[in-house]
Simulated assay, not measured.
Amino acid sequence: MGLDIYVGSLSRYLSGDWKTVAAQAAEAEGIAFVTVGPDRESLDAAELVAVVAEWQAAIAAALGGVEPWDDNPDAPYATDQPHWLGYGGLALLAAYAERPDLVSPEDTPEEYAVAPAFQAMQHDPGRFPSLLGGAEWWLPFDGVRATFTAEAPHGHMMAMATLAQLRAELDVLRDAVGATHVDLATALLSGGPDREEVETAAEYRHRWGIFGLAVFAELCAQAEGMQLPLLLDY
């Protein structure tokens, strides 16, 4: 099961009218590609737009009456694939920034959830409540920093946050690990490392963490520019 990040309108996402980077690459090569993902809404386009609008209004009211975003189903979208290794590495970077005393040589991005530092942060995620709190959707309520649990339009309960919250966490983490914009741009181009490419386990998980940070930062910037949600898809 792969992990993708989608940036775009909820109505487009829930209708399934988008393609992962793997699907786009396969299509460009003329290769048949089948995406296995969550069930999509069976409503027609107009009904789906209405459902999303009603849901947006409810969330906006719960956050203090903020203005909902324009969820146009024809709005452009962006997507990329940090892989689970990038996500796990990013989670470890955040956990280590809060609990450097719990870094273990046994930690791996593949099994980030059992790392002592990550486990310790489940009770108090510190400066990273969405990255370490399991958020899967980040919503563009301008100027609002919040994390919360809500029922999504398709009926699933999930942890969510705002884009402003994600931006704040990514900026803090970038500064904490000393990653420059050049470092992030280089990571985007090179991708995550193969285990054989690096000498130590620490370097392996760090480089995957920087790659995950780079992908999240890039798509967060795109989501902010488009004023549309950023979602995890797996």
Results as ranks from 00 to 15, higher is better:
I5K: 00
W18C: 02
A32L: 09
F141V: 00
S11L: 11
D175Y: 01
D17Y: 01
N72H: 13
P68W: 03
A32G: 08
S104C: 03
V144R: 06
P76C: 14
Q24F: 02
A46C: 10
L189A: 15
T20V: 05
A60E: 06
A57P: 05
M226N: 07
A58D: 06
L232N: 08
V103Y: 12
D101R: 13
G30Q: 05
M121E: 10
R99V: 01
E218T: 13
Y234E: 07
L131N: 01
Q56K: 10
D71N: 09
L166Q: 01
E67T: 14
A120S: 11
E98I: 14
Y96W: 15
Q81D: 12
G65I: 05
E151S: 12
T35C: 08
L93E: 04
Y112K: 00
E196L: 14
D233S: 11
R205Q: 15
T180S: 15
A57G: 07
T108A: 11
L231N: 02
W137C: 04
S190L: 15
G155T: 08
L10Y: 06
L10G: 02
L184D: 00
I59Q: 07
A61E: 14
L173E: 03
S190V: 12
S9G: 11
A214E: 04
G37V: 04
P140S: 06
R127N: 13
L85N: 00
T79R: 02
D233F: 08
L232E: 11
E54D: 15
Q222R: 14
G16C: 08
G16H: 11
E197P: 01
A120R: 13
Q165K: 07
G133F: 08
D4F: 09
Y96E: 10
G16N: 12
L228E: 01
M121R: 03
L231Y: 03
H154I: 09
P116S: 05
G155C: 09
D4W: 02
L231W: 01
P82V: 03
G178F: 07
A32S: 12
G8W: 01
H83Q: 13
D17Q: 10
V36N: 13
A152G: 05
E110Y: 15
E29Q: 12
P125W: 09
Q227N: 15
V182G: 10
V172D: 09
F141T: 00
L63S: 04
M1W: 08
G30Y: 05
R99W: 03
I31R: 12
D171C: 09
D183I: 05
M1F: 05
E224V: 04
E111A: 14
G155N: 08
Y204A: 04
Q227L: 12
T35D: 12
V21E: 03
L85C: 05
A60D: 05
E111H: 09
Q227W: 08
Y204W: 15
Y204I: 07
L102P: 00
E218W: 12
L231A: 06
H83R: 10
H83Y: 13
H181R: 14
A185S: 15
L230K: 00
L85M: 11
T108I: 04
W55Q: 05
P105H: 13
A113L: 07
S130I: 03
P193V: 03
